[in-house]
Design a protein around this nucleic acid. Sequence first.
DNA 1: TGGATAATAGTACGAGCGTTCGCAATTCTT
DNA 2: AAGAATTGCGAACGCTCGTACTATTATCCA
Lengths: 206, 206
Amino acid sequence: MRKGELTRAAILDVALDLASRDGLEGLTIGLLADKMNMSKSGVFAHFGSREDLQLEVLKLYHHRFEQEVFFPSVKEPRGIQRLKSMFARWVKRVSVEVASGCIYISGAVEYDDRPGPIREELMAMVGAWQGALLRCVKQCVECGDLKADTDPQQLVYEMYGLILALHHDARFLRIPGSLGRAGVGFERLIETYRNPQTPSAVVAQQ
Amino acid sequence: MRKGELTRAAILDVALDLASRDGLEGLTIGLLADKMNMSKSGVFAHFGSREDLQLEVLKLYHHRFEQEVFFPSVKEPRGIQRLKSMFARWVKRVSVEVASGCIYISGAVEYDDRPGPIREELMAMVGAWQGALLRCVKQCVECGDLKADTDPQQLVYEMYGLILALHHDARFLRIPGSLGRAGVGFERLIETYRNPQTPSAVVAQQ
DNA sequence: TGGATAATAGTACGAGCGTTCGCAATTCTT
DNA sequence: AAGAATTGCGAACGCTCGTACTATTATCCA
């Protein structure tokens, strides 16, 4: 690996940190150069433009999210167990990010009215994650873990709400115990939709 | 009313519009002056600083929120009916704001790591609103509309999550039908906590 | 090890930001 | 209507931003 690619990777790593804290719009080349002990132009040369830098940061975040949340969960068997794993890992990730900030969430606010490639990319990523959740819920219905009349979209909507509330209460308001509330909310949520016909052993093992 | 106060009020009105769209941090005196057909310094003179302007905008938003959501709801009788009114008016406000943006929500992301008077003010306002919701839920428990073992904080947490998800899905992802999902989620939510001893007529009249 | 190539620094530019200040115009008060 | 007070404008300041261009230094490959 040539030195250039190595520095570039190091820059992106720091940039992701900064963007997590201040948002993608708050990510500035000057500050990034300071943190890297490099000149502005030195940093800049690795990316064609600030927008490209932001897009690369976004892709890096997406990659980490997949590694920590998505991929480990699809190793779980289909059904409620996988869904629980997805939510648990998601919560864990966001609660770690309470100290730094989740780019999916801050980005949703920053780019809800700002058209352009970053918005498109971000929408695609968040959409993909919601799509993965949706598929998992549908599998839960198919395999009988959740009731047949379950509205998958509705369930995903409410799961997302629990995470957003966690980010809001823990990171902005700094209310202790928010982490637990996300868990309690999720338990109550799937309890509502749980299929009473399913052998309790299947769900109790989790 | 002197002319100065009148223009000041007009500026604040436009400023609230801009801040709703681009966030409080995105509110710029130059853009504001353009929209007002005034000079930058002319606009600036009405406020000691940009931060003061932002604080005034925040207070104006809070005032509108109270007028449209809080005050009409406290006219409803205590209990589940008032809680439903609060949520319905809240949803209505946010769904109108889907086209412009809710400052409580965007502000929570913008100022979760940015100390200063704006963060303090915003936290106080959001805290006050959550406090109002909390009181209302507690009254629901006291008057028997909700189960005695209801965790009021938990219920408020989940209500907030439903609103945040609405803002996220409708404004950022632009998924149709999000409005309905907030309502369905709320119904399911209070159904979980509803006291089965309560005469159904009381809750059915809503 | 030397020459080609890649990586970084330095400098400068134009634009936009919040803010200051002095002056002109308008509005209010009597 | 006249004088006082308020209101608004215009220009300028210092700062930071992204970006472009040139020169120097470090790295890679034969």
